[in-house]
Amino acid sequence: MGAGHHHQLHLPGDSVVHRLPPQCKLLAVFAFALVVVATPRERLWAFACYALLLAGVAAAARVPPGRLLRRMVIEVPFVLFAVFIPIVGLGERISVLGLSLSLPGLWAAWNILAKATLGVAASVLLTATTEPRAILLGAQRLRLPSLLVQIAMFMLRYLDVIVGEMRRMRVARESRGFEARDLRHAPVLARSAGALFIRSYERGERVHLAMLSRGYTGRMPVVDDLAASARQWGLALALPALALAVWGLTW
């Protein structure tokens, strides 16, 4: 992972979707995912409609389809897992292109694939239209556990610092002729990982001191006024509401 990787998720813009307050978008994505997950896998039409809804959001947010698809590569490990289910699955078998596949396995794979894809696509749209910092402010606004929001905030802030430290350690190893070629070199890498952990832990202590020095008492002060209007809530929640309507209509 390169430095600054997490910034590439965000696609700066000024569309309707970009301008919505982050807490509205967070809740909308969460509700949408719930509706998708609650849809029985046999209702193929419903899934097609959900995909259309997301395509509509992407168009409104002016997120290019190519970018959306590239970001969805993160899903690949799940896809690979899903591919195996029909092959190793039990139950009634059918023959597809000369392969004997399990019918329940096929349904299970479809179930995972369809729901995961829709969920990932919705999340990618959220991160493309919302700065990482704004997502955290939205989470804070939605009263998510303060400690979890703070941990995510520090991860966002210190990822680059830790990746930088990791890179310097690698350079130091390689400068002295180390090259990881096979398993015998694993202990060296393990010790590096341990050292990185201890350095990060110590940095955590120093950051905590700096926070205490500026009056930290366990809660982050909420300074941004992120009030959302009823219209903005309505606009954001239109996505899960339409999905819910589809769910009802295909009953």
Binding site: R133, R157, V207, A210, T217, V223
Partner: peptide, 23 residues
């Protein structure tokens, strides 16, 4: 503090400067 990375822990400069007075 000596290492500014220890002192600047908020996502933006503005948030960080606001941290103390907001507390």
């Amino acid at each position: 503090f000596q290492d500014p990375d220890d002192q600047l822990f908020m996502p933006t400069v503005r948030d960080d400067v606001a941290f103390g007075p907001a507390n």
